[in-house]
Write a protein that binds this DNA or RNA. Structure first.
Lengths: 111, 111
DNA sequence: ATATTTAATCGTAAATATACGATAATCATA
DNA sequence: TATGATTATCGTATATTTACGATTAAATAT
């Protein structure tokens, strides 16, 4: 059957996946936690806390920045990275409904 | 300086990343949404809704099941997939603190 | 018993992600 | 101006992911 299979993924699904994917690595979770604790925000400080090379940490920071979860602005010879409120808010807005849907609708009737 | 770099990623960070990674693809987001809407739960029905081959959908279902976000149990010749309350709850518990940390602590002082 | 339906798995190709060291670029300092 | 500190980027090797068609396996129907 399956007359059409034309329905592609919609922008919201793609955006959700993009954000989730950016969080899909222990190093990037660790970075988020570090920034949330606000003990530090320079690339070098973050590198000191992670079991990874500087270039690798820089790559992870770039990935988080690209999707809008963090911001990074140059401050002299260093770069200060901070969590982006907008990005975190977006994660919040995309995930919470999903979680709510599940916990309310899925209580009784599965196979 | 960076005297030691011994601290590896902790289990919670790895688990969070594992769950986020599983959600890091539009097809898997779409599957979660389909299952939350509870219109269907058999692999074939899901395949009909997605722009992907049956074998690919089966792979995505396997990935979601592996990390505990969905369950799948054989029902005759078909397999019924359902969202796992435990899995969703875990996502909830791991993400909410992170989001809260951010939105409360990160208000004022960034670079 | 044979055919059909459904889903999982296999094999594989192509793309993406991850990690590192080396290098380059930029700013601050001597 | 030269040096040092900091971070980004380049080049590259390896691993993982994603996708597909073909095949297999299992249950049901004929």
């Amino acid at each position: 059957m399956a007359i059409t299979k034309a329905k592609l993924f919609d922008p919201s699904q793609k955006r959700s996946a993009e954000l989730m994917k950016a969080l899909g690595h222990p190093a990037r979770i660790a970075i988020i936690e570090l920034l949330a604790d606000r003990e530090t925000c320079f690339c070098g400080d973050i590198t000191d806390e992670l079991p990874l090379a500087q270039s690798t940490v820089s790559q992870h920071l770039k990935a988080l920045k690209k999707v809008g979860i963090i911001t990074g602005e140059i401050d002299g010879v260093r770069t200060c990275y901070c969590l982006s409120e907008e990005g975190i808010q977006e994660i919040n807005e995309l995930l919470i409904p999903l979680i709510n849907d599940v916990t309310t609708k899925n209580k009784e009737n599965c196979c």
